[in-house]
Structure formats: structure tokens, C-alpha cells
């Protein structure tokens, strides 16, 4: 391949299919964005499923979400936001050619990623203790069916604006649906965190061994784009699962 490429000064090689280095680098970034858009479509369908069932079974979802630990979710949000900031700095230092600072930032991101998974493991463990895995062990008895949600708005808004309430709250079948969606979405997000860990670790190793694959800041930017997307998904998952309003 190198036979068909030419280098511009001491920068990265420009391969034969590109006119210049700008076009080459743009194609890398566009390719990553194209991949991220497939990810948006992937998670988009799941968010649609969530929206539909949340709309149909609002009360049950409200009661079921009270079993989730919003403090742990909030801690995870903070951890992911901090990791996103670290990735932004890693890209910044990569563009400036400061490898040590770049590696430190990537290392911090990696620690945040592991921290996120550790917190998530505690959360999932607690759900198992409370028999909230949506399988044959599922037992939803914490909230009895007679408990009704009363609010000022129930009496003061026209009937057609009421979300379906008071009939299906606390229904174990629908609560199981909530936990199915919760574990699917947060689990798939967790899987993306794991993939991010692999990507960041690989990038750090390649930088440390001074691999010829890393000739400029673009690989760091691409990994950064992926990690920001992981953060982006959690930004929506947190309020939608942990902070459901009445």
C-alpha cells in the first residue's frame, strides 16, 4: 500500500485515492460519523420502544423506576461526563503533539470507564438481590396494586390529556417490561463501554509502542468520537430511567 502513497513532509502518508491529506482525514472522520449514525438508528429504535411502553404504562414505569438507585445513576453520569472531558483533552493534546499528556488523559478515561462498569455491576447485583431480573425469578411485590397516584393535575386537566393512570400501576407484567427495557438499553450501553475500553486501550498501546499506524491525531479523534457517543447515550438514559416523574 505504501507504494501507492506519498508522504507530505513529516506528516502522515497520503494514499493514492486522496487528493491531499485534508481529504484523507475528512474521509476518516466522515466514515466514523457514518458508523455513529448507524448506532443512533440502533439506539433510536430502543428509545422508541421505551417511549411507547412508557406512554402506555406510565404508572407502572414510575413505580418500577423507584427500585433504581438514582444516586448510583447520577454518579455514573458524573463519571461518564468527566471521561468525556478527558477525551476532549486527549484529542486536544494529540493535536498539539503532546503525547504524555494525551496518554494521561486517555488513561483517566480508561479509569472512568472501569469505574462506570464497577458501579453498574453493583447496581445490577442489587437488582438480582431484589429479584428484578426479567426472567423466571422475577418477583415484583414491593408496590401493592392498591396504591394510587393522586395529583393536582388529575383533577384540573381535561380528561383527554391524562396519561393512562390508576388502572395499570404496579402491574408486575408491565414492571417486567420496564426491567426488560432497562436491562436491554443499559446492558447494550455497557457493552459499548466495554468496546470503548478495548478501543482506548488499543490506542494507548499503539501510541506507546510508537506504531506506524499512529501518525497523527486522527485515530485519537475517531476513538474520541466513539466515546463521546457512549456518553451521549447515557445523557438520555439517566433521566429516562432513573428520574421518571409522576
Amino acid at each position: 500500500m505504501s507504494g501507492h502513497a506519498h508522504a507530505q513532509g513529516d506528516g502522515p502518508e497520503v494514499y493514492f485515492q486522496y487528493e491531499d491529506i485534508d481529504q484523507q482525514q475528512e474521509s476518516y472522520v466522515v466514515g466514523m460519523w457514518a458508523f455513529l449514525m448507524t448506532e443512533v438508528m440502533f439506539f433510536g429504535a430502543l428509545f422508541l420502544i421505551y417511549t411507547l411502553y412508557r406512554w402506555k404504562f406510565h404508572d407502572t414505569f414510575f413505580f418500577a423506576h423507584e427500585q433504581l438507585n438514582w444516586k448510583m445513576g447520577g454518579l455514573n453520569t458524573a463519571v461518564l461526563l468527566f471521561s468525556s472531558v478527558m477525551v476532549a483533552f486527549a484529542v486536544h493534546f494529540a493535536q498539539k503533539g503532546k503525547k504524555t499528556a494525551q496518554l494521561i488523559c486517555l488513561g483517566m478515561t480508561l479509569m472512568c470507564a472501569f469505574g462506570f462498569l464497577v458501579i453498574k455491576t453493583f447496581e445490577y447485583g442489587a437488582k438480582g438481590d431484589h429479584k428484578l431480573y426479567p426472567n423466571y425469578t422475577f418477583e415484583y411485590g414491593a408496590h401493592d396494586k392498591d396504591h394510587k397516584v393522586e395529583s393536582w393535575w388529575d383533577d384540573n386537566l381535561p380528561a383527554f390529556m391524562h396519561i393512562e393512570k390508576k388502572e395499570q400501576h404496579g402491574d408486575p407484567k408491565n414492571a417486567k417490561l420496564f426491567y426488560s427495557i432497562y436491562f436491554t438499553m443499559t446492558g447494550l450501553h455497557g457493552l459499548h463501554v466495554v468496546i470503548g475500553i478495548i478501543a482506548i486501550t488499543s490506542l494507548m498501546v499503539l501510541i506507546m509502542i510508537k506504531s506506524p499506524l499512529i501518525t497523527d491525531y486522527v485515530p485519537t479523534e475517531l476513538v474520541g468520537l466513539y466515546w463521546h457517543f457512549v456518553d451521549l447515550v447515557w445523557i438520555f438514559l439517566y433521566p429516562l430511567f432513573y428520574l421518571i416523574p409522576r
Binding site: Q8, D10, G11, D22, H92, Q95, G97, Y217
Partner: peptide, 12 residues
């Protein structure tokens, strides 16, 4: 500019 400045890209 990125290091070297031959190919300017935005640095936040």
C-alpha cells in the same frame, strides 16, 4: 493549528 501547521485543523 495542529502541530506543524501544514494542515490546519481546529483545535478546541
Amino acid at each position: 493549528l495542529t502541530k506543524g501547521g501544514a494542515h490546519p485543523h481546529h483545535v478546541l
